[in-house]
Design a protein around this nucleic acid. Structure first.
Lengths: 297, 297
DNA sequence: CAAGGTCTGTGCATGATCGCACAGGAGCCC
DNA sequence: GGGCTCCTGTGCGATCATGCACAGACCTTG
């Protein structure tokens, strides 16, 4: 029962009763229809139709095929409408992935997007590993750092995250507040312990402070911020994180050379769909109102 | 959503995750699979798969297609099994048609056939008009008279119905019994009024009896027999009908030149099916035991 | 009774589709 | 890291399916 096209032509013949009528509906020559029927019957070893000069009358087997193929046809038509409509409507799942440090920034965006398009189910994934867009794991990824260069990925700049040097009030109370850029040497610092350490502001810091002054290193961004807030040392923090909560003192204000660019990354296969486009434009729109973030590029 | 073969191809790709795997299952070259997918996506205007070096991952639309086509595939497999099995099993409807005069002969055959194959639903159709086998109106027709010569029909001789000249006891009591072939002139006769009048025994009668002696004519065989039994006149009757019931007197015994041949007619498209073959052999078998019927041909 | 329309069926030439071969890329195992 | 395997993707030639034209059969209509 392979070759579904022959089943389809047989279905039209059974439905309309004539080869010519089926050929018209199918948009092929009636000779093609005859050959399809012949091939199908030969493979099944049973006659599907009784042939006569006025047309084809389905046998029991032909009537059986008619009902089955009728249901199939309806299913396929509905499927086609769903798929064609889906590309143009904003519904179904929207999977967004990013590094976990951006969740406080992104969750409000996702919430307002879902409110704007109630039919959308939003899934926000963060994980140690990078989710791969080309395996269909996510529609949109928000990436930080150097511009991603994977092929088949569409990369757009979003904003530049401003980063400053902060300490907790408890730290300042105990160790004093550095007067400025040249007064950092004797202080204690908190640093990441992974590839994030290559960020420009960390390179800037290492040029001015000895390695022995970095008294706390962690791979977990969450732990880094917590250590900062508990007064263990001075550390870099993005502007939007520093604004959150109370008790942080700005040691050095953000500088443009410390900016960390954010990128919107989508797979080229999905980039043109209305759903992804809707989210990307929504994200960019909201990002315009973000304080402590510079414009894209 | 035309071209069901492409849907089938996409289904296998979605199911297996790779183009090569789908090509193996489908028995085609993997280039064909790629082209099918490309064509289908182009027509739908949506991507069904995310392409990457390790295979094809279905998108939402692809997953939707997967579930629909999965159900379709199962339906088609079941349909194929039903149709292939149907040709070899004896089940479903068996439609038999004949002239109404043969019903007393055929009904016992149909009954025993149904008992032998309980899955069969027997339909016995009799009508003034001839049912046309090439329109699929019946599987088997039992015809009388000259051998049918329609093309695409398989014609086999069944038996020769013996016909004699009979009258009722009441008629004999009133008008006397003809002594023999030469003593018919003064009697009253019952004749058919349609093409059945061309039967050989009626031609034989008209050569010996004046037209004014045919006092009762009807197109309805049932009425003819009833008129005979009620003593209106003398008439021809097939042997098996004369045996039925009481009160008939044989005026002249059956002659071989009066025999009316019966034919089994089947459409060539259905003739080879097991169901039709089973019925034809069953019918021939039973017919061997028919009294007052000569052997075929 | 004849003419016209509609249907099926078949040989032949064209065109689309398929298979083949090869290139290129990605992951895996040693 | 190098070799290996499995995957996708594309140009080209052969094959197969398709379209065309025509014949034949049947029914309908004037």
């Amino acid at each position: 029962m392979e070759n579904w096209d022959e089943i389809r032509t047989a279905y039209q013949v059974a439905r309309l009763g004539t080869v010519s009528g089926a050929a018209d509906v199918l948009g092929v020559h009636h000779a093609t229809v005859i050959r399809h029927i012949d091939a199908l019957e030969k493979r099944l070893g049973t006659r599907l139709f009784q042939r006569h000069a006025r047309g084809y009358t389905p046998t029991e087997a032909g009537r059986d095929l008619l009902t089955v193929a009728q249901a199939t046809d309806e299913q396929f038509v509905q499927l086609g409408n769903r798929i064609k409509g889906q590309g143009e409507s904003v519904s179904g799942e929207l999977v967004v992935t990013s590094i976990s440090g951006l969740s406080s920034l992104l969750v409000p965006v996702l919430a307002s997007f879902q409110a704007k398009y109630p039919e959308v189910v939003v899934r926000f994934l963060t994980d140690m590993r990078l989710f791969r867009l080309d395996y269909g794991e996510a529609h949109v990824a928000i990436r930080a750092g150097a511009a991603p260069e994977e092929p088949d990925n569409v990369v757009q700049p979003l904003v530049r995250i401003k980063t400053g040097l902060y300490a907790s009030e408890s730290y300042v109370a105990e160790h004093g507040r550095p007067a400025g850029e040249d007064d950092l040497a004797g202080h204690r610092f908190i640093l990441p312990d992974n590839e994030a350490a290559r960020a420009p502001f960390y390179r800037w810091l290492r040029e001015r402070v000895g390695a022995d002054r970095c008294i706390f290193r962690t791979t977990e961004p969450q732990a880094l911020e917590q250590a900062l807030r508990e007064g263990i040392g001075i550390g870099f923090l993005s502007g939007h994180r520093a604004e959150e909560g109370e008790g942080l003192v700005e040691i050095l204000p953000p500088r443009s050379e410390w900016d960390s660019p954010l990128w919107i990354v989508t797979h080229v296969d999905l980039h043109r769909t209305r759903k992804v486009q809707a989210f990307v434009t929504h994200l960019k729109e909201v990002a315009k109102g973000w304080k402590l973030c510079g414009p894209a590029e």
